[in-house]
């Protein structure tokens, strides 16, 4: 069936076929063979031409553009992310300045500066029977030395003890007993410190990791 269909089609286009067959034959030029054999003898196979076309100009220019842009982007990004460490991936670092001792040292440092007395306090504190001793060194680094437990018995009336340690009334009532220093106040178990707004603000800054990244305040540095 198909054959018949194509035969029909052939008949349909018979005129066109005949016209195409009548088209004159185009022959190769007379020097065709000579040129061909010369090319073969000279090994001129025309492949170098194509290679030259597609070497420098077509490939190098876009490659240079891409490479240079990648280098620029790399350096810019590298500078931005040089000190960045992903806190979720990396192990947390122990920061010396975060320890409570260091913070207290900073308070004490300020306190000592206000007192304008370098090593005077240490002798006074040593002579008293209090077990909490504050040692002030020459380089202003202050450390706590804990002594024996201050209370003789296991059961102890804390309120009466505190009351007995108090001297004076009202604002003066919370001065630490035995220090003879009105400025050192006692708030429960913590040594009272005159409030400094700057220090409080710096402590607030430590609450988040992002603010900690910005840098540690100079007052907290060793």
């Amino acid at each position: 069936m198909k054959k018949k269909f194509y035969n029909k089609e052939e008949k349909k286009f018979e005129d066109i076929s005949k016209q195409l067959q009548k088209l004159p034959q185009i022959n190769a030029p007379e020097n065709f063979e000579f040129n061909l054999m010369t090319r073969i003898e000279n090994k001129n196979f025309g492949t170098e031409k194509e290679i030259k076309k597609y070497t420098l100009f077509s490939f190098l220019k876009p490659a240079i553009a891409v490479v240079s842009s990648v280098i620029i982007v790399f350096f810019v990004m590298d500078q931005q992310t040089n000190n960045f460490e992903n806190p979720l991936i990396s192990d947390p670092q122990v920061r010396n300045t975060d320890s409570p001792n260091q913070l207290e040292n900073s308070y004490e440092k300020e306190f000592i500066l206000q007192e304008n007395a370098g090593a005077v306090q240490s002798n006074k504190l040593k002579s008293k029977p209090t077990n909490l001793v504050v040692v002030v060194k020459d380089n202003d680094v202050v450390s706590e030395q804990k002594g024996n437990f201050p209370f003789p018995d296991k059961s102890f009336d804390l309120d009466s003890k505190l009351r007995s340690n108090r001297t004076g009334t009202g604002n003066q009532s919370r001065v630490l007993a035995g220090t003879n220093n009105n400025r050192v106040q006692f708030e429960g178990f913590f040594p009272g410190i005159p409030t400094n707004k700057r220090i409080i603000d710096s402590l607030r800054g430590l609450d988040s990791i992002s603010q900690a990244k910005k840098g540690i305040p100079d007052s907290l540095k060793k």
Binding site: Q25, I26, N27, A28, F32, E33
Partner: peptide
């Protein structure tokens, strides 16, 4: 020689 002309055409 045999194919240069038919191929050219």
């Amino acid at each position: 020689k045999r194919y240069k002309d038919p191929l050219t055409n």
